[in-house]
């Protein structure tokens, strides 16, 4: 039997994997992907809770979050292109004109 708790554990794991990825990965694209993982962890939690509560609030929230996450990755990729044009790299460690 799969209960809401199972989904929540998975979502917490996803969130932690995303956060760990952001801290360890050095490629800007990978960091953007890991940020998406964090957003989707929240989506999963929203769905699980919406199911447990039996109301639509959580499901509605997921749609908003998907749209916002899509906008976020669009802006992120656009800036990543500018970055690779200007600095010829997408490695976060080499992006250091400003003191980090």
């Amino acid at each position: 039997m799969v209960t809401p708790t199972h989904y929540l554990v998975v979502s917490a794991l996803l969130f932690c994997i995303g956060l760990a990825g952001i801290l360890t990965r050095r490629n800007v694209l990978m960091i953007l992907l890991c940020i998406e993982l964090m957003f989707n962890a929240a989506n999963l939690a929203f769905i699980a809770y919406a199911d447990a509560w039996g109301n639509l609030g959580g499901q509605m929230a997921v749609f908003f979050i998907i749209v916002v996450a899509a906008a976020e990755v669009t802006v992120g990729l656009a800036i990543a292109i500018l970055l690779s044009r200007q600095l010829r790299t997408l490695n976060a460690d080499e992006v250091s004109l400003l003191k980090w």
Binding site: F15, L32, I35, A45, A61, L82, V95
Partner: peptide, 25 residues
């Protein structure tokens, strides 16, 4: 320098949005 600032702001800002949205959930 402006592009680098934008990238850094975006990454840090998105991570904090991730925190915020998970907290809301």
């Amino acid at each position: 320098r402006s592009v680098e600032a934008g990238m850094k702001y975006l990454i840090m800002g998105s991570v904090s949005s991730g925190f915020l949205v998970y907290g809301i959930a």
